[in-house]
Every structure is written in C-alpha cells, then in structure tokens.
Amino acid sequence: MTSNTAEQHGLSRSGLYRAARKGRFERIARGIYLPADAAAADWDWIEAASRRPAATICLTSALSHHDLIDAIPAALDIAIPRGSRIPTGNPSIAWHSFSQSTFYLGRDEIPIPGTDLTIGLYSPERSIADVFRLRGEVGYELARDALKEWLRRGGKPAHLVQFATTLPRAKTPILTALDALA
C-alpha cells in the first residue's frame, strides 16, 4: 500500500502514518507500506511494481530468475519504457530505459509472492537478446554463458534469432555466438 492508496483501504494518509508508528504497518520504501503481519515478499519487486506499473525484470535479474546464470545480481535490473521518469531512491534497483516500440516483446506478468501485485518479466529469449545487445554494459561472458545454458536446456536457436531480429544491435552478435558454439 502506498500513502496515495491508503484511502482505498479505509485509512487517511495521516492514519497510515500513525498505524506505521504503532507497528501495524512496516515501511519498506519511501511512501510504500506493508501490513506488519504480511507474508514474506521481495521488497525490491514490490517497490519497483509500486513505483512504475510497467516495471519489468530484465537483463541479469531476468537471467538469474530463469536459472540461466549462476551470478547473483548486485541490484534488481528493472526496465521501464524510454521517456518514463526514473524513480530516485533505492540503490538496490538498477533502472534501465528500453525503447517503447520493443518494450512489450517477450514480456509476461508474474505475481509477486505474498502480495496482490504483479511485475513484468522478460522471457529467456528476450533476456538473452538484451544481454547480447547490451554486452558492453553487462559483459560478453554473461551473455555467452546464458546462451550456452539456454541451448543446453533445449532452447531453439530459430526462436532466439526471431527475437534478435526485432531488437536493435542484437542479431549479429547472437548469430556470431551461435556459430561459434555450433
């Protein structure tokens, strides 16, 4: 619950703050509260979904969610449509701006456990294509390792190339990597 949505739950903004001071709600981020007895949940996911409804788990975080890499992301990678204001605050969320024309390609909504919220998550194919096109930012080794694991699990190269064709700067490095791995 946010301070702006407190009225939907029968609380005024000041009532929410009083309830938080009494321990009935726990502040997880600036302006975002959870009931003190709420089930365990990923606070970064809740904050990202509360701050931007289009928030989508991407890059290293998406690859980790799909178990395609062993690396533990230093921050939660979240994509938002280019032109959206990037929220300030939590340094454990890395905000990325993705083109509006391709933003929803390979995007699914998943529930955030312990809440009634959902957050976007890119498919394994989209995530691999994104790390190849942003390999200067995230590292070529990460992209290669994710591709190897995806292929080992039975991923179809034609499906990946289809995604790569729709995203800028992704097709050539993916084709080169697929050729090298073949």
Rank of each mutant, 00 (worst) to 15 (best):
M1F: 13
T2L: 00
T5Q: 11
A6W: 15
A6V: 13
A6Y: 15
Q8P: 00
S12W: 02
S12M: 03
S12H: 03
R13G: 03
G15W: 06
L16D: 02
Y17F: 07
A20D: 09
A20R: 09
R21K: 10
K22H: 01
G23H: 03
F25C: 00
F25I: 07
E26I: 05
E26L: 03
E26N: 01
R27F: 01
I28G: 04
L34M: 11
P35M: 15
D37C: 08
A38K: 00
D42T: 06
D44H: 12
W45P: 06
E47K: 04
E47T: 14
A49P: 11
A49T: 10
A55V: 14
I57K: 03
I57N: 01
H65R: 06
H65Q: 06
I69D: 06
D70R: 14
A71Q: 15
A71Y: 11
A74L: 13
A74C: 10
A75N: 08
L76C: 07
D77K: 05
I78F: 02
I78G: 01
A79L: 11
A79I: 14
P81Q: 05
P81N: 05
P81V: 04
R82W: 04
I86V: 15
P87T: 10
T88D: 13
G89Q: 08
N90V: 07
P91A: 12
P91H: 07
I93E: 12
A94S: 04
S97N: 11
F98E: 14
S99T: 10
S99K: 08
Q100T: 10
T102E: 14
L105F: 05
L105M: 04
G106V: 03
P111N: 07
I112R: 02
G114C: 06
G114H: 04
G114K: 06
D116H: 11
L117P: 00
L117R: 04
I119K: 01
G120E: 05
L121V: 09
L121S: 08
L121I: 14
S123K: 08
E125R: 13
E125K: 14
E125T: 11
R126M: 06
R126H: 02
S127N: 00
I128N: 07
I128H: 09
A129S: 12
V131L: 04
L134P: 00
R135M: 04
G136M: 07
V138P: 10
V138N: 08
V138Y: 15
V138H: 13
Y140V: 08
A146T: 05
E149Q: 11
E149Y: 05
E149N: 14
L151N: 01
L151Y: 01
L151H: 02
R153D: 07
G154Q: 08
G154M: 11
K156T: 12
A158V: 09
A158L: 13
H159T: 06
H159K: 09
V161P: 03
V161C: 05
V161W: 01
V161D: 06
Q162V: 00
A164Q: 08
L167R: 06
R169D: 15
K171M: 12
T172V: 11
P173Y: 08
P173M: 11
L175N: 13
A177R: 05
L178S: 12
L181M: 14
L181E: 13
A182L: 09
A182W: 08
